[in-house]
C-alpha cells in the first residue's frame, strides 16, 4: 500500500502522515531526506522530531540513494520528502546537475517493496509562478514528472489544505 501526500508548506502534511503511519504495522521508519542546512534547517528537524516523539518511529537520515537502502524490518515507512530527495539527487555539492528521476523513482520503488505501508510526502513546486534560472526550472519539471509517476503508482493520493485532507485518488485512510 502506498499513499502519496502532497500540499504546501506548513499545511499539516507531516502530522497527518504520522497519524496515518500509526494505522500501519510496526516497526515504523521515518526516512528523512532533508539536509538540515543552517539554523533554519536545524529548527525544522527539531520541530519534526518533537512531533514524532512518542509515536514509535525509528529515524533514518538519508539524503540520496534510497535504491540501495535495506530497511531493518518490514512494517511502515514515511518518506519526507520528494522535493528534498529530488534536489539531493539532482545537484551535487559542486553544483553539477544530473537527471534525478530514475534515482528517485527506483528509490521509492525499493522502499515500496520492503514495507506494508509506505507514505510519501511531496509538494506541488510548480505552483509558485516565479521566474527561475534554468537549473531550478529543470528541478520543477523533474519534481512534477516524479510526482506524476508516483501518483500513478500510489493506491491513494491526498492533497492537504489547511490541515484538511482532500482525496485526489483512491480511498482516505481511516484516522483521526
Amino acid at each position: 500500500m502506498m499513499i502519496l501526500l502532497t500540499g504546501g508548506s506548513a499545511c499539516g502534511k507531516s502530522s497527518y502522515a504520522e497519524d496515518i503511519c500509526l494505522q500501519g504495522p510496526a516497526p515504523r521508519f521515518y526516512l528523512a531526506a532533508m539536509q538540515p542546512y543552517g539554523e533554519d534547517g536545524q529548527r525544522k528537524v527539531q520541530r519534526h522530531r518533537a512531533l514524532r516523539a512518542g509515536k514509535g518511529f525509528e529515524t533514518i537520515e538519508r539524503y540520496t540513494d534510497y535504491a540501495s537502502l535495506k530497511l531493518p524490518a518490514r512494517g511502515t515507512a514515511l518518506l519526507e520528502c520528494i522535493c528534498n530527495l529530488t534536489a539531493n539527487e539532482m545537484f551535487d555539492e559542486n553544483g553539477n546537475q544530473s537527471d534525478p528521476c530514475e534515482r528517485v523513482l527506483s528509490g521509492v520503488e525499493n522502499l515500496a517493496q520492503q514495507c506494508d505501508l509506505l507514505i510519501v510526502i511531496t509538494n506541488d513546486v510548480g505552483s509558485g509562478g516565479d521566474i527561475y534560472e534554468d537549473g531550478t526550472n529543470d528541478y520543477i519539471r523533474a519534481v512534477g514528472a516524479i510526482n506524476s509517476v508516483l501518483a500513478s503508482r500510489a493506491d491513494t493520493v491526498i492533497e492537504m489544505v489547511a490541515g484538511i485532507p482532500i482525496l485526489v485518488k483512491g480511498e482516505l485512510p481511516l484516522c483521526n
Binding site: 504546501g8 508548506s9 543552517g38 513546486v125
Partner: peptide, 15 residues
Amino acid sequence: AEVGSGVIPLSAEDR
C-alpha cells in the same frame, strides 16, 4: 491566499 506551494524560497524570511 494559499502561499505554500511552488519552490521553497531561498530566503529564510520568505520561508
